[in-house]
C-alpha cells in the first residue's frame, strides 16, 4: 500500500469512527442505570448541530480562547499518524516518535488550560489547575510503559513497539510485565480522557469537575471541535491499549487485524462504560495516589524485565 492511500485510510478510520466511542460509553451507562439512553450515534448529531450555531464569546477572552479548541482536534489527529491501527501501519514512523506522541498531548494541555484561564472564571481556573497538576503524574507513568515496550521491541518507534508480530512473541514470554503495563496504560487513558475514577464527564457541579469545567465557556463550532477532539483523543489513546492487548493468536491478514482493532476499540468503550457504571469517582486528594501507584506498577514491571 502506498503512503498516500495509507494516510487517507488511516485518517478516515479515525475521523469517521471515533465519535462512536462516547456513544457506546453513554449507552452502556444507560443500560446499567436501567434507562434507554441516547442513540449510539448521538455525538454525530451533536457535532452537526454545533457546527451550525453561532458562538457566544466573553469579552474577557482573547485569541488564546480559540487555540485550545483548534489544538483539541489537531493534536490527536497528528498524534494518530504515529500509531498503527491494527494492520494499518503508522503513516509517520521514526525512532523516537513515541516521545513526540506523548509531548504533543502536553502541547494540547498547555493550550486547553490556558484557554480556560482566558475566560477569567475562577471555576475554570480551578479545573485548569487540576488538569495540569494531575497530568504531571500521568506522564512519567506513560514514559515508563514506553521504556518497557521499547526494551521488549528493541525500537523506540510506536509502530515497532506495538507491531502485532512483535507482541505475539512478547506476550507469552513477558505476559506478566505486559499486563502491568496494560493496567498502567488503562489508568492513564481513563485519567487523560477525564473518565471515572479520576474525573466525571457527566457531573453538573463545577467544583468537582476537572476537564469539563475548563470548556464551560466554549460554544458553537468551538465546542464542537472540543467534543470531536475528545472523541479523537479517546480513540488515539485507547488505541494504545487496544493495540497492546490484541491477542497473540492474531491472523496475519491485514484486513482481519484492522477489523479486530476496531472491534477492540468498541470493546474498550464498553469496558470504560462498565467501569464508569460500577465505580465511584475518587475524592480529588486521592487521585495522585492512583496515578503514582499506576506509574509504580510500570516501574516495577520495567525492573522485572531489566534484571
Amino acid at each position: 500500500m502506498n503512503l498516500l492511500s495509507l494516510l487517507i485510510l488511516h485518517s478516515l478510520l479515525l475521523l469517521l469512527l471515533a465519535p462512536l466511542l462516547p456513544g457506546i460509553i453513554a449507552k452502556t451507562k444507560a443500560f446499567f442505570g436501567g434507562r434507554k439512553g441516547a442513540p449510539v450515534l448521538q455525538l454525530y448529531f451533536d457535532l452537526n448541530r454545533l457546527r451550525r450555531k453561532g458562538m457566544v464569546v466573553s469579552p474577557t477572552t482573547s485569541w488564546i480562547f480559540f487555540v485550545g479548541p483548534l489544538l483539541a482536534v489537531a493534536v490527536p489527529l497528528t498524534a494518530s499518524l504515529m500509531l498503527p491501527f491494527g494492520g494499518l501501519a503508522a503513516p509517520v514512523r521514526f525512532g523516537g516518535d513515541a516521545i513526540l506522541f506523548v509531548y504533543l498531548f502536553g502541547l494540547l494541555r498547555f493550550f486547553t488550560a490556558s484557554a480556560a484561564l482566558d475566560t477569567g472564571s475562577a471555576f475554570e481556573g480551578m479545573g485548569a489547575a487540576r488538569e495540569v497538576s494531575f497530568s504531571c503524574l500521568a506522564e512519567p507513568a506513560v514514559l515508563l510503559v514506553l521504556l518497557l515496550l521499547g526494551r521488549l521491541a528493541g525500537s523506540f518507534s510506536l509502530q515497532q513497539m506495538l507491531a502485532p508480530q512483535q507482541l505475539a512473541v512478547a506476550w507469552p514470554a513477558q505476559g506478566v510485565t505486559l499486563g502491568l503495563a496494560l493496567v498502567t496504560l488503562l489508568v492513564v487513558v481513563l485519567a487523560e480522557n477525564a473518565r471515572i475514577p479520576v474525573d466525571d464527564p457527566n457531573t453538573h457541579l463545577e467544583l468537582t469537575m476537572i476537564h469539563e469545567v475548563m470548556v464551560l465557556d466554549h460554544s458553537g463550532p468551538a465546542l464542537g471541535l472540543i467534543e470531536y477532539g475528545s472523541a479523537l483523543k479517546l480513540w488515539v489513546l485507547g488505541g494504545l491499549v487496544v493495540q497492546l492487548s490484541l491477542p497473540p493468536l492474531l491472523p496475519t491478514d491485514l484486513a482481519a487485524t484492522t477489523l479486530l482493532f476496531i472491534a477492540g476499540q468498541l470493546l474498550l468503550a464498553l469496558l470504560i462504560g462498565i467501569i464508569e457504571s460500577v465505580m465511584a469517582r475518587l475524592p480529588l486528594p486521592r487521585v495522585p495516589a492512583l496515578l503514582i501507584g499506576s506509574g509504580l506498577l510500570a516501574a516495577f514491571g520495567l525492573i522485572l524485565i531489566l534484571r
Partner: peptide, 10 residues
C-alpha cells in the same frame, strides 16, 4: 503518608 509508603514498598 500513603504515597511514600507505596513508593518505598515498590
Amino acid at each position: 503518608g500513603f504515597i511514600p509508603t507505596l513508593v518505598v514498598g515498590v
